[in-house]
């Protein structure tokens, strides 16, 4: 589904991704964790080419992300992306936020797109907010709208960039619940997060990144009970004592 072959990325002289190799299968849920600045967000932002890479190859559903001939619009419409800061369009209602890309990019008729959007809003638990503006919603509700917006493109993969980091604690659960359900329905997901409970519950694999490299990749059980890498142990001891 998603393949990285020797991927390298620099920001100027800063080497942010170093020889990343990975293979994510359809239906797999992968959690990426690691200290800030380790390249987690950059890793997933490369998948839909929000960030270009300088060396190596990324293949998503058979499409080479960084090849000139690749249809980026088609690629991006197969990848849902959920941002830490939601990035909903503030001048559009919730419903319009969800239907914009299906109508403009996928050319879905408005009626059909709206019916689908209402179903998705139902699924993320906020069907009654369709005509509100994002500024009238709580953070948790915004993030659930953002998930619905991602699902509206009927993507093959959903990427989450620290989806709960900007939320008040009491709103984290409502967002995680939606994500857990999504994972159980078989969506391929890559989630950058420090929600270790979520990782234990639904992840098939957990990646630990440090200084631009994936230093450990394992099943959640092995990862938490039996971390092999020194840096992983150190990191886990820090975040787990705080939980």
């Amino acid at each position: 589904m998603i393949i990285f072959k020797n991927v390298n990325k620099w920001f100027g002289s800063l080497h942010v991704l170093k020889d990343i190799n990975l293979h994510i299968h359809p239906g797999e849920v992968v959690v990426v964790c690691g200290p800030s600045g380790s390249g987690k967000s950059t890793l997933i932002r490369c998948i839909n080419q929000l960030e270009p890479i300088q060396k190596g190859e990324i293949i998503v559903d058979g499409m080479e992300v960084n090849k000139r001939s690749t249809n980026l619009t088609k690629l991006r419409s197969e990848i849902g992306f959920v941002f830490q800061q939601f990035n909903l369009y503030p001048h559009l209602t919730v419903l319009e936020n969800v239907v914009l890309s299906p109508i403009k990019v996928k050319k879905v008729p408005r009626k059909e797109a709206e019916a689908n959007a209402l179903r998705l809003l139902e699924r993320v638990g906020i069907p009654d907010k369709a005509n509100d503006y994002p500024s009238q919603l709580s953070g948790g509700q915004c993030q659930r709208v953002a998930i619905a917006r991602g699902l509206a493109m009927n993507p093959k993969v959903m990427l989450f960039d620290e989806p709960t980091s900007a939320l008040d604690p009491e709103m984290i659960k409502e967002v995680l619940d939606v994500m857990v359900e999504l994972a159980r329905e078989g969506m391929t997901m890559i989630v950058v997060t420090h929600e270790m409970g979520f990782a234990r519950q639904v992840a098939d694999r957990v990646f630990f990144m440090d200084a631009g490299q994936i230093v450990e990749s394992n099943t959640p059980d092995e990862f938490f009970e039996n971390p092999r890498n020194e840096r992983t142990r150190e990191f886990l001891s820090k975040i787990i004592t705080h939980n």
Partner: peptide, 11 residues
């Protein structure tokens, strides 16, 4: 973030 969201969603 607005440009990024719109880009990520294929516009």
């Amino acid at each position: 973030g607005q440009v990024e969201a719109a880009t990520a969603y294929g516009l």
